[in-house]
């Protein structure tokens, strides 16, 4: 029978696990040809997703998001600052994404993950360009005081689609955020007012705890392009084997916010990009529903 390519022939006599490790790409392509993935998902389906709001009580807003086993914990802490000269009646939001060594075997203390600053930048770009937050709402006293919102996202378990999970947890944490009540004291300083505190209340600046109005909420979906296949919501194993990723960010009314295609071996043709966007559109509806359910669960408690 001559010399057919080694992996094709061996697959019949080798154990599945050994084949998966030795010829990961062939292993995947065998599955893709049958329109199924090794974890049993069809190509276009994302993993099970859950959101838990209010996971950290020491923060002003927080959320834990899980997509499959990828787990992200996001929390917002509010601080009072002096606004900049250029925008005296605007607050500020600082977004940081962390990958502690606990999240993946490739991250070690003193050797931070390369992906972390990339995701961090993508997140702040997406959140600022989506216009989700009106920074004017974070103002307290024009030119004197405004809120600085620190949004920190920790990856607790990295199993692919990091940006999607990070964005989801960030959005959910902002959704859950309650801006604390503060008032202006005699020295012109902002102090946190006690809830239902004494009648001696100084001039209240922010009378009661309030939520931010989120104008449009961005959601994202990452897809792998491999040959003619499009795999939604990849695991880290899939990301390691097939390297071309496309991330689409849409807002809740299905408007395109951003599209990332950071290089990769496969060129994205118009049809492939359109398919990715169609998949994302479906996913946005799913995610919106999950977020609403998490929120209504909070209100019942």
């Amino acid at each position: 029978m001559g010399l057919p390519d080694a992996s094709g022939d061996l697959s019949s006599e080798m154990e599945v696990d050994a084949f998966r490790r030795l010829f990961p790409l062939r292993f995947y392509e065998r599955h893709l040809a049958e329109s199924i993935r090794p974890d049993g998902r069809p190509l276009g389906r994302a993993r099970d997703t859950t959101i838990a709001l209010g996971a950290v009580t020491s923060a002003d807003g927080s959320a834990l998001a899980k997509i499959g086993s990828t787990t992200m914990l996001a929390a917002v802490k509010m601080e009072v600052m002096t606004p900049s000269m250029e925008s005296p009646d605007e607050g500020c939001i600082a977004i940081d994404f962390h990958m502690p060594p606990i999240c993946s075997p490739i991250v070690r203390p003193g050797r931070p993950a390369e992906a972390a600053p990339v995701v961090s930048k993508q997140l702040s770009d997406t959140i600022s360009s989506s216009g989700m937050i009106n920074l004017k709402e974070l103002s307290l006293v024009s030119g004197k005081a405004a809120w600085m919102a620190y949004l920190d996202i920790y990856c607790l378990d990295a199993d692919g689609a990091l940006f999607d999970a990070a964005l989801l947890s960030a959005v959910a944490a902002l959704f859950h955020l309650q801006i604390p009540a503060v008032s202006l004291n005699d020295d012109g300083k902002i102090v946190v007012s006690e809830e239902d505190g004494g009648k001696l209340e100084k001039e209240p600046v922010n009378k009661e705890k309030r939520k931010l109005t989120l104008r449009s909420i961005p959601f994202s979906l990452t897809c792998i392009l491999h040959k003619n296949y499009i795999l939604a919501d990849p695991t880290s194993e899939e990301e390691a084997i097939m390297e071309t990723l496309v991330t689409v960010v849409l807002d809740s009314s299905s408007q395109l916010i951003s599209l990332y295609k950071p290089g990769g071996a496969v060129l994205a043709y118009t049809s492939a990009v359109q398919d990715c966007i169609a998949l994302t559109r479906q996913r946005v509806r799913e995610l919106q529903k999950i977020l609403d359910e998490a929120n209504s669960g909070m209100e019942v408690d």
Binding site: S58, A59, S62, L73, A75, K77, E79, H98, Y150, D152
Partner: peptide, 8 residues
Amino acid sequence: TTFATPVR
């Protein structure tokens, strides 16, 4: 984490 303690 940065948000673990009462003061960031």
